[in-house]
């Protein structure tokens, strides 16, 4: 029982981490990024290569993978999203365009990964020794993953709610029309937010790869779960994403443990469906 709680929290922690990235991209940059999960998977493979070929510790590899994700997403924003933002007459049109373009991007990234690594399951062994904790036994890598997710989450919340830069981002999320009246450069905020979201996705990917197997085609499922967490927590709400992420991780682990591992996605969907019927604006969302 306790073992499942811990495992659920570990899984949920990584969901929270990546969903924070997506909620920042969608809430601030207003771009619905369907290739988000493929960024995560690309980061998984990058960490795997850094570890198995260059013998770089996966925790240190995050220092390479995270900034790479930042730069990669900055370039995507600059060259693909910016022209779409510029031509969109309203928010709805931008949403449709960004959905379509990132859907195409999904296939490009996935195709590149398939060519490079093939379609098989990949994993590596890192800190796979058992650790006793709270009267139960957990794999060391899972514990590391949980600590890393919580640290990154806490840092992000701190930055968003305690610094001027975070206040600017939140202002754009709350009132994109009024923010420029206070001298805020919304374009710049959107660009930064998109890149930070990408960095979080890459970091999350690095963390996930420490304890889970992954395939080149698993991006869709990650995007799906991140999207559900974002909706569950309320669009653009970082605390919401953290709570919803942990909740989803727990639900999934318990379904896998007590019902059937093959039904986890069905369970996730059921949670989503119930939420849509009961609280369409999310747990922390405003009507």
């Amino acid at each position: 029982m306790l073992e499942h709680v811990v495992n659920g929290l570990v899984l949920g922690g990584t969901y929270a981490l990546v969903a924070m990235g997506l909620t920042i991209q969608y809430g601030i940059a207003r771009i619905m990024n369907l290739s988000f999960g493929d960024t995560i998977i690309a980061a998984c493979f990058a960490t795997y290569v850094l570890f198995s070929v260059f013998a770089i510790n996966p925790i240190l590899a995050l220092l390479i993978v995270g900034p790479t994700g930042y730069v990669f997403n900055l370039l995507i924003y600059r060259f693909i999203m910016k022209p779409l933002v510029a031509r969109a007459p309203d928010e709805g049109a931008l949403e449709v365009d960004s959905i379509l373009v990132t859907f195409g991007l999904l296939f490009v990234i996935q195709g590149v990964l398939l060519v490079m690594f093939g379609g098989g399951y990949t994993s590596y062994s890192f800190l796979n020794s058992p650790v006793s904790m709270l009267g139960t036994v957990v794999a060391g890598n899972r514990l590391v993953a949980l600590v890393l997710s919580l640290t990154f989450g806490a840092v992000l919340v701190g930055v968003l709610y305690r610094t001027r830069w975070g206040m600017i981002l939140r202002a754009v999320a709350t009132a994109p029309q009024s923010a420029p009246l206070f001298g805020i450069d919304t374009n710049r905020a959107a660009r930064t937010a998109f890149a930070v979201g990408g960095a979080l996705a890459a970091t999350g990917g690095g963390v996930v790869s420490m304890f889970q197997t992954f395939t080149a085609t698993a991006g869709v499922v990650f995007t799906m779960k991140a999207l559900i967490v974002v909706i569950l927590g309320g669009k653009g709400s970082v605390p919401g994403a953290i709570v919803a992420g942990l909740l989803l991780g727990l639900v999934e682990t318990f379904v896998a443990a007590y019902i059937d591992p093959g039904l986890t996605l069905a369970a996730v969907y059921t949670v989503f469906l119930v939420l849509l019927l009961v609280r369409p604006n999310g747990l922390f969302g405003k009507a």
């Binding site: 195409g104 999904l106 296939f107 490009v108």
Partner: peptide
């Protein structure tokens, strides 16, 4: 799928 994706974009 790479060509397909690029074409689509």
């Amino acid at each position: 799928s790479i060509i397909l994706g690029l074409l689509f974009i």
